[in-house]
């Protein structure tokens, strides 16, 4: 049997947390290990340790954190994502409304997927499994936001990538989108992962020399 995937949820809606707890209890491959109203609460770290704090000692990062896009503590989604990524978890964004500019920001900050809260349990479980296996979680909302991103900082997409993105955003299954483009499903998924990678690449901050050095190191690691 495959390893159990550990999941934490950060959301300030008690009802949603209760609902997710009930939902995930019925899925044997997943284990909900923690719920919290803020990222700080989840990490148990005093705010003073920001931005380089890695959470309190003994914090065991889950494989996946489901993170609500807009938390009531007023924290910036991008900060939340970066804090969670530094602990080693992967981040799946969840939100009530597909707010496109924020979706783009979240992906650029390193989130691996984005779902609106109206999806059913199988979709959520599939997305979590995708993330845990190292791939991006697909959703029409995310594809739509990237396909219609007209911000000046958007990465350049190839016509093929754009085509797959648009078709997937329109609601087609990946299989149908691949058929229309005359490629295999596997290739189509690669295209979508590449789009997400381009966004994350463009979103990596290079403000200081330290960051720059880190980025060069990351790039050489990527190449190797």
């Amino acid at each position: 049997m495959a390893r159990v995937i550990t999941v934490s949820v950060v959301d300030d809606d008690r009802m949603l947390l209760d609902g997710l707890r009930t939902w995930l209890a019925g899925v044997p491959e997943l284990r909900l290990v923690a719920t919290a109203a803020t990222v700080g609460e989840l990490l148990g770290a005093p705010e003073a340790q920001l931005p380089y704090g890695f959470g309190r000692a003994g914090y065991a990062p889950p494989d996946i954190v489901l993170l609500d896009l807009v938390l009531r503590d007023g924290s910036a989604p991008t900060d939340n994502i970066r804090r969670l990524l530094r602990t080693g978890s992967r981040v799946l964004m969840i939100s009530t409304v597909p707010d496109r500019s924020r979706i783009i920001e979240a992906v650029r900050a390193g989130a691996d997927g984005y779902l609106t809260k109206d999806h059913d349990l199988p979709t959520l479980v599939a997305a979590i499994k995708d993330l845990a296996s190292g791939r991006g979680a697909l959703s029409t909302e995310l594809a739509f936001a990237c396909a219609h991103d007209d911000s000046p900082a958007r990465p350049r997409l190839s016509p093929r990538e754009r085509q797959i993105l648009l078709d997937y955003a329109s609601g087609l299954t990946l299989k149908s989108a691949a058929r229309r483009a005359g490629i295999t499903v596997h290739t189509a998924k690669d295209y979508l992962d590449r789009v997400k990678a381009k966004y994350q690449q463009a979103g990596r901050p290079t403000h200081t020399k330290l960051d720059l050095a880190r980025r060069v190191r990351e790039d050489s690691l990527d190449a190797g």
């Binding site: 078709d167 329109s170 299954t173 149908s176 058929r179």
Partner: peptide
């Protein structure tokens, strides 16, 4: 209209 068996309708 674009469709194929088993692949939905667009």
């Amino acid at each position: 209209v674009d469709t194929a068996p088993g692949e939905g309708v667009r």
